[in-house]
């Protein structure tokens, strides 16, 4: 199967590969996977707690070129968005941007799942940190 140039670009020069400290209260981590293809995708966001803006995003994906490209693109889309804006990102945006063929659409779905998982993780932490702070007062 031929990959589009954009997929190849993200595959050969993935943006924002890496990991952040999972224990950091400002970091949300999403880990998702698709057993059928053997894919695992880890996506992390670092949020500014006062503005709610995603200041950094990192990913590490083991999987096919489309899965890597989808998560690489996802990290680019996330930076600068608020957490609520991030939740509105749809896999179709990734499909269109990367010109993914139908058999690879599930890779973009996985990336959307990873975004949602990371944001949810951050939000849970945020609520817990606040609750802990209130208890301390």
């Amino acid at each position: 199967m031929a990959y589009s140039n954009k997929v190849l670009d993200h595959y050969n020069n993935p943006r924002n590969v890496g990991t952040m400290d999972k224990a950091d209260p400002n970091v949300g981590t999403g880990m998702v996977g698709a057993p059928e293809c053997g894919d695992v995708m880890k996506l992390q966001v670092k949020v500014n707690p006062t503005t709610g803006i995603i200041e950094d995003a990192k990913f590490k994906t083991f999987g096919c070129g489309s899965a890597i490209a989808s998560s690489s693109l996802a990290t680019e889309m996330l930076k600068g968005k608020t957490v609520d804006e991030a939740l509105t990102i749809k896999n179709t945006e990734i499909v269109n941007e990367l010109a993914l063929p139908p058999v690879k659409i599930h890779c973009s779905v996985l990336a959307e799942d990873a975004i949602k998982a990371a944001i949810t993780d951050y939000k849970n932490k945020f609520v817990n940190t606040k609750a802990a702070a209130e208890v301390a007062h």
Binding site: M31, G33, A34, V40, F62, H106, L110, D113
Partner: peptide, 25 residues
């Protein structure tokens, strides 16, 4: 069966597979 999403895949399994892949890499 053979669905291509992470629904119902336990997080421990994903962690484990991720770590194994890291080691292999």
């Amino acid at each position: 069966v053979g669905e291509q999403r992470s629904k119902d895949v336990p997080p421990e399994l994903l962690e484990e597979v991720f770590e194994l892949n890291m080691a292999l890499e």
